[in-house]
Design a protein around this nucleic acid. Structure first.
Lengths: 337, 337
DNA sequence: CTGTTAGCGCGTTCAT
DNA sequence: ATGAACGCGCTAACAG
């Protein structure tokens, strides 16, 4: 129907010709920059509509040197934890008129570094979620002219701004809670060794001694299957409570416990970390720590946005507070005696 | 340290000058196109490395008219179901040297249409996952010069190639299974009315009569909370089994049933749909239908890739087979009498 | 095999 | 307020 098809996609030029104005005028109207008389503005708009014209974002990027795009690199798109963060970034940035590009490094530090560099070349800024790369690589990224932000990063000396959650405080709340209801011997099932998150959560185990709880650390992992497989070993130490790296692991443990006919919390108490959706609906509902995942993404975007706008941002790591959520998987230790 | 900083980012030009060759040679070396003598190739590579040069993907896109980027629009980044699909697309396309851009329409059909058009302008192709837009919009998209593919689309007359899963067959397998173990009265908790998926799964309810099972349909939704809230109403109809739109809903029901002291499968059997990770680990483990989510993404990419390469693709809807997974949440009806 | 040159589609001075 | 002309960084003919 339209006469656009004949000459291929419409461009500033074709619109200018159709509207009887110069390309500069078309550019000004479409970009909303400069001042154009109402009458000509209308003519341009009409021609654009008629030709089905949309300015090419690519050409625009080349001309302006900016793409209004954020790149995000995550270690693993399978993890619900990460995509809550991604959603936070996506929505907050979309509200500012930015588009988000996501890439998955598949837990490979080398691939991560390559992706990061690559994506950064096509975007105005980069968010590295839970980076696996070592500090040298991170420092290299820092030397880029483009803003780079870490979320859940190593929390130290990388030079890049880093926003995380208070793993130490959150985990400590959990131990304190257990101590208060009489637990003295707990087993902590730790997460994947590569994860920075894991370090801080482990630290809390040492501090738990202050509350009089003795924590035995066992390696597990970060998945349901890992929890399931680690449960028997945990029981070997005769704990009154099992604390897990995250909710997924806790569900794996719960499953194994149920298989063996061990009651939660009557025989042993159980805690998770993250408060994923499911945790309120398991039987028993899981005591855990809520972590502001989507907010991590949105706040991260906002500081990144400030960096894009040229503001100086303090690279000191920041941490969002975690919140204890007590449900039914933890009970006082007397009841189990 | 390097001498790149003084003149800003390196370009073909600066590298050409540093290597003592022409820009064309640099371009050929960097893009791996054309033939350049080994000696000069080395000189260019050395200069590029020294200046920290990386070709600008944006300029390259403008020059070639192709970006090697796929755009993906999903209704809701919160849904694990969609994430698996996205991961499938991401990995398959990455293997072909493409990057993926993801946008979230937040279940808004209008936003979806706008996003789709917008993203398509910045990519070589578009994947619409579970589109909410009506057929007119979809048909409009079809008129684009760029390849567009639907995943889990309306499965008819949209003109766009559409790849989905066999919802009807999968759901039917579930009813047949229930019939075989003696169930005659089942309640089906249906999903969100807007989802195309829901329609086909509903259809199966009518066909279930062939197996002698009478299905009462109740509206629920697609979340754990929806299942939890619909459970009481379902029980009202005195079913021996409750079939759910998806696994999430089933878990919500399971939770409510447990609260009320109703045994699964002793008092009532329960089925889900999707086979999400968790389903193997609930107590009891959930009988469900496995749907090849990641494969949906990867296969989708492969046909899209063929379209990008100019091959003609049959727009007839295709469906990937679903697979029945019998676990512990369904039992023979005699046992419950 | 190599270099020169003309765009890709747009923003942006600089005149007018 | 408007238009002409140049440049963003790169690729793709076309000569040589």
């Amino acid at each position: 129907m339209t006469d656009a098809d004949a000459t291929g996609p419409a461009t500033v030029r074709s619109v200018a010709r159709a509207a009887g104005v110069s390309v500069a005028t078309v550019s000004r109207v479409m970009a909303g920059t400069g001042v154009v008389s109402p009458e000509r503005t209308e003519r341009v708009l009409a021609a654009a509509r008629r030709l089905g014209y949309t300015p090419s974002p690519i050409a625009r990027s080349l001309a302006t040197g900016t793409s209004r795009r954020v790149a995000v690199v995550v270690p693993n798109l399978s993890n619900p934890y990460f995509y809550d963060i991604i959603r936070g970034i996506g929505r907050a940035s979309a509200a500012d008129g930015y588009t988000m590009t996501v890439a998955d490094s598949m837990e490979d530090a080398t691939a991560e570094a390559a992706l990061a560099t690559d994506m950064l070349a096509q975007a105005d800024a980069l968010v590295l979620v839970a980076p696996r790369a070592d500090r040298a690589v991170l420092r290299e990224l820092q030397r880029s002219r483009r803003p780079v932000l870490m979320l859940l990063g190593p929390r130290a000396e990388a030079g890049l701004p880093d926003l995380g959650v208070d793993n130490l405080g959150g985990m400590t709340m959990l131990y304190r809670h257990l101590a208060e209801i009489g637990h003295r011997r707990v087993v902590y099932l730790s997460g994947p060794p590569g994860a920075w998150q894991n370090r801080r959560r482990l630290e809390a185990a040492r501090r738990a001694e202050r509350f009089g709880v003795e924590v035995t650390v066992l390696e597990a992992g970060g998945t349901i299957a890992a929890g399931h497989d680690a449960a028997d070993a945990a029981l070997t130490h005769g704990p009154t409570a099992i604390a897990c790296f995250n909710d997924l692991v806790a569900f794996g443990v719960l499953n194994r416990l149920t298989e063996r006919g061990i009651g939660v919390p009557t025989d042993v108490s159980l805690t998770g970390f993250d408060d994923i959706d499911f945790s309120a609906y398991s039987s028993p509902a899981l005591t855990t720590v809520r972590t502001p995942r989507e907010r991590l993404g949105s706040e991260g975007w906002h500081t990144l946005r400030r960096m894009i706008d040229g503001e100086a941002v303090d690279p000191a790591p920041e941490e969002l507070a975690a919140e204890l959520v007590v449900r039914d998987s933890t009970g006082s230790v007397q009841a189990s005696a």
